[in-house]
Design a protein around this nucleic acid. Sequence first.
DNA 1: CTGACTGCAAATAGTTTGCATGACG
DNA 2: CGTCATGCAAACTATTTGCAGTCAG
Lengths: 146, 146
Amino acid sequence: MRLTEKKITAMLRQRGYKLTPQRQAVLNVIALSHDHLTPASLYERVHQEHPGIGLVTIYRTLAILAELGLICEMHAGGNCRSYLLRRPSGHHHHLICSQCGGVVDFTDCDLGELEKRLSAETGFDIEGHLLEFSGLCPSCQRTASA
Amino acid sequence: MRLTEKKITAMLRQRGYKLTPQRQAVLNVIALSHDHLTPASLYERVHQEHPGIGLVTIYRTLAILAELGLICEMHAGGNCRSYLLRRPSGHHHHLICSQCGGVVDFTDCDLGELEKRLSAETGFDIEGHLLEFSGLCPSCQRTASA
DNA sequence: CTGACTGCAAATAGTTTGCATGACG
DNA sequence: CGTCATGCAAACTATTTGCAGTCAG
């Protein structure tokens, strides 16, 4: 199960944020999108359907969503301010298609052992980690070989 | 053994790049630094000793070093245009102190299994991965508890 | 109603480019 | 010497902020 638009709007309300049509439009695009979105690309898509919406609103909405922990950043692919709808499962990682930008996520990273060993070897108090795989998704593999 | 300033300058020559005092100054700072450097922080340090050097030169030098594969990017900590001297060992990852920015690196990431499983489950042709741990280094732990 | 939200425009930050001068090899 | 590198300033891009009008609750 993934976060739906409805759940997000509920969370917004709960935190005292208002549910404006602009925010609904932005949320709608984010919820329907399966790849990562930069502020610019998000703006483009939202603006197409709702020409009145400004880029500033995109930034502000993204800031709120980030604050609520509903979206998470992507790092692979050079692009560093790129966002994704966060899946409800707390801890997860991404597998990103370097061609189309599609994202699959997974939760089972057996990093506990490695973390323990690193901690023992370096004396670090390890708080977290960032893990992303990149590659070609099945569909892009087909396109590439064609 | 890590890359020394000398080896880098040799590589530069080999590729036809000139060895100017500005580049030497930049290389010197990078080689001596044990934490990650943003263009701005690098500029600051270099500029302190060599006030004549401009920020533009920093950018250009970083571009060359990146092209030669002598530095690598960091991602953790929000800062996305942050560089490190690359260690000679090809494949490696970082363990970053979230307090002081110090970096330790390690090479033994047992991600092969996970990669295989993900590949089988998703059909992705996995090309690479990005892995970074963040936490508190021993010295910052002491400071924090004091 | 009232405070939060929006859109515009201006401000700011970060990075790149054009060009004349200067220096490495 | 010729070519490449430098530094300045200007151009650009990305992001943030100030403000007056508007709207959800």
